[in-house]
Design a binder for these strands. Structure first.
Length: 184
DNA sequence: GACCGGATCCGT
DNA sequence: CGGATCCGGTCT
């Protein structure tokens, strides 16, 4: 059984945690089916006092989990057909989240999870995966260390994609030259 | 109760 | 570059 990253990993500054998620593994655990894994190759940070953050205007039913403890999932529905997956950072009551933008999937086409909507489609992540405690080893959704990618990659930092407010913050990180990044 | 735009993706 | 497709947030 894979060992999830500890809450203390997530319970830090969003801007520190985000690039450190690169190279980690997302694992979808199921008793009935074989586990599915994907390597995180692209992320974006959304922080407190960030106009692009869903929590920018305070707590609502949708973003409530962002005000809770770190290490939980935040999954939301967008454009009438896609879901996006985030992990919550920072201490309780301080909103912060990291959008997972692309995964490299072992033994699959490079582009099968090369975007936030595509990776949820591939992993069948829906609103049912919202508010899961990903630090609990029995959670259907966890993040683990990975042996597949070690430290032999370089990280590129750039502006975030697809937003208008806060568009100038350079809070997107991805693995250089990785073929599964959303916009290569 | 209505309106509107969105942390996207795909085909043209 | 436009269309798909629908929910949450905001205003009335």
């Amino acid at each position: 059984m894979p060992k999830p990253l500890k809450r203390s990993f997530f319970e830090r500054s969003t801007l520190k945690v985000a690039p450190e998620l690169l190279g980690k593994s997302i694992v979808i655990q199921s008793k009935k089916r074989k586990n599915k894994t994907g390597l995180i190759v692209e992320v974006e940070a959304y922080t407190n006092n960030d106009p692009a953050c869903h929590a920018a205007r305070g707590k609502t039913p949708r973003n409530e989990v962002m005000f809770g403890p770190a290490g939980f999932s935040y999954v939301y529905f967008i454009y009438g057909m896609y879901f996006c997956l985030n992990f919550i950072t920072e201490k309780k009551d301080i909103p912060g989240a990291i959008l997972i933008r692309a995964l490299e999937i072992p033994d699959e086409d490079n582009r099968i999870a090369s975007g936030p909507g595509k990776l949820c489609r591939y992993l069948k992540i829906t609103k049912d995966h919202n508010k899961l405690d990903c630090c609990n080893s029995s959670s259907p959704l966890i993040v683990t260390e990975s042996r597949l990618l070690k430290n032999d990659f370089s990280i590129v930092q750039s502006k975030r994609i697809g937003i208008s407010q806060g568009a100038n913050f350079p809070w997107r990180w991805y693995i250089k030259d990785n073929p599964s990044v959303s916009k290569p």
